[in-house]
Amino acid sequence: MIRLLLADDQALVRGALAALLDLERDLQVVAEVGRGDEVVAAAVEHDVDVALLDVEMPGLDGIAATEAVKVVRPSTRVLIVTTFGRPGFVRRALRAGADGFVVKDTPARQLADAVRRVHQGLRVVDPDLAADSMLMGESPLTDRETEVLRAARDGAPVSVIARTLFLSTGTVRNHLSAAIGKTGAANRAEAVRIADDSGWL
Rank of each mutant, 00 (worst) to 15 (best):
R3Y: 06
H119R: 15
R153W: 11
T83R: 07
V29C: 01
A186F: 00
L12Q: 11
G100F: 03
V72E: 14
F101V: 04
V160I: 09
V71P: 00
L60F: 01
A96G: 07
G59M: 02
L4H: 11
A178N: 15
A131H: 09
P127F: 08
H175N: 13
P127K: 13
T169N: 06
G97P: 03
L129P: 12
E24M: 09
H119Q: 13
R117I: 06
A98L: 01
A114N: 11
K182D: 02
D8P: 06
L94T: 04
L4I: 15
V78Q: 05
A42F: 07
R116H: 13
D61C: 08
D154K: 11
A96R: 10
D132N: 06
V48A: 02
D26S: 04
Q110E: 10
A189I: 02
N187G: 12
R150G: 10
R150L: 14
M1P: 13
R77W: 08
L129H: 09
E138D: 15
A18G: 14
G170A: 15
R193N: 09
G155C: 09
V40C: 08
L201M: 10
I63M: 10
A42R: 08
V13I: 15
L167Y: 07
T66R: 12
V102G: 00
G62M: 03
A11V: 11
V39S: 05
L53W: 02
R123K: 10
V29F: 03
L53E: 06
